[in-house]
């Protein structure tokens, strides 16, 4: 009975109600067997003006348009300019960023373009890939 109720509630959970402006970046994660990172734009906007990331750190205004990888982040580029254990927590917290459902395509969630053209379809091949949470990559490279 409880299980049936639980399944019922799952049934009514809307498929994607992520916060407006949440950015999913899945340039490499799926291929690497890692959950794609979800960047909560609203969260960062409370703490920093747009200028800090988009002018000073060089983030382009395009989801997936920045060639970000963990090596660059560890070397202090992109996210690593703050996520270095000094301004914000460091890269060892893999699954706080890499928290998206496997197979979620690169997107700005809830954008007008997405409303008009529909959300990008998840890649079925990649969705099957199991995220490897046991061996966090950034730590290995340290």
């Amino acid at each position: 009975m409880v299980l049936a109720l639980f399944l019922l509630t799952l049934e009514f959970v809307p498929s994607a109600t992520a916060e407006y402006g949440d950015v999913v970046i899945n340039n490499q994660s799926d291929k690497a067997g890692m959950r794609p990172p979800v960047f909560p734009h609203w969260f960062h906007r409370i703490r920093f003006r747009c200028k800090v990331c988009h002018a000073d750190l060089g983030f382009k205004f395009q989801a997936g348009g920045n060639q970000i990888n963990m090596l660059k982040i560890i070397d202090g580029e992109f996210c690593g300019a703050c996520h270095n254990g000094e301004i914000a927590w460091s890269v060892e917290n893999c699954d706080v960023c890499h928290s998206g459902k496997p197979g979620t395509p690169t997107q700005v969630h809830g954008s007008t373009v997405q409303k008009l053209l529909g959300a990008p379809a998840p890649k079925p091949d990649n969705a099957a890939a199991k995220p490897d949470t046991t061996s966090p990559k950034p730590d290995k490279k340290k």
Binding site: V13, A16, E19, D22, R35, V38, D95, S99, K101, H109
Partner: peptide, 17 residues
């Protein structure tokens, strides 16, 4: 403004979520 665990994009089975 759904919480991340319920927003359809975050993986609720992920500890960090």
């Amino acid at each position: 403004n759904q919480p991340p665990s319920n927003d359809g994009i975050h993986d609720p089975t992920n500890e960090g979520t």
